[in-house]
Computed example of a mutant assay.
Amino acid sequence: MALRAAGRGAALVGVPLFLGVGGAAVGSLALFAIALGLLAAYVGCVLAVRIGARRLRVERTVSRQEVVEGRPVALDFAFSGLRGLPVHVEVRGPDGRWVALPPSGGRIECAIDRPGPHVVDASPLRVRDDLGLFSRPSRGGRPAALLVLPDPTTVAGVAPRGGADPVGDPEPDGLRPYVRGTPMSRVHWASAARGGELQERVFVTARDRLPLVVVDTGGGAVPVARDWAARTAAGHVLALVRAGGCRVLLPGDRRPTTITDAAGAWPAIHRRLASLEPGAPGRAAGGDERGAVHVRAAAAPAEALRSRGPLPPGVVPLAAWTGTV
Rank of each mutant, 00 (worst) to 15 (best):
L212P: 00
G157R: 00
W228E: 05
L198D: 09
T217S: 11
M184T: 11
T217N: 07
A164K: 13
R242A: 14
A159Q: 13
L210V: 07
T182I: 03
V179Y: 02
D169S: 14
R231G: 01
G181R: 11
A234V: 06
R231L: 01
P177Y: 05
P166R: 11
L198Q: 14
P256C: 02
L198S: 06
L249M: 10
A206R: 12
D169L: 15
A229T: 03
L240K: 10
R201N: 12
R186H: 13
P166H: 11
P251W: 09
G245V: 12
H236V: 04
P172Y: 08
L212D: 01
S185Q: 15
A234N: 08
G218K: 08
G163W: 09
R207F: 04
G168I: 00
L198I: 15
P160I: 02
V248C: 07
L212Q: 00
Y178M: 00
F203I: 10
G196F: 02
L198A: 12
R186T: 10
V241E: 04
R180D: 15
H188L: 02
P160Q: 03
S191R: 14
G174K: 00
A225V: 01
R226P: 01
A190N: 13
V248A: 08
A233V: 04
P251Q: 05
D173M: 02
A229V: 06
Y178G: 01
G218E: 11
G252F: 01
M184E: 15
M184R: 14
V158T: 10
H188S: 12
G235W: 01
Y178I: 00
L240D: 09
A234L: 08
L175E: 02
Q199L: 15
G195A: 09
R254D: 14
A193N: 03
T232F: 05
A164V: 15
V222M: 12
E200N: 05
G220E: 07
T182H: 09
A193R: 12
L240C: 05
L198M: 15
D227K: 07
D208M: 03
V167M: 09
E200G: 03
W228L: 07
R209P: 03
E200P: 11
T232Q: 14
R207N: 08
V213H: 07
A159F: 06
A239C: 10
P211G: 02
L198G: 06
V202C: 03
V248Q: 09
G163V: 11
V213M: 11
L175S: 01
L212I: 00
P172K: 01
E197M: 12
E197Q: 14
R176K: 12
L240F: 13
T217V: 14
A230R: 10
A234M: 06
T217D: 10
H236M: 06
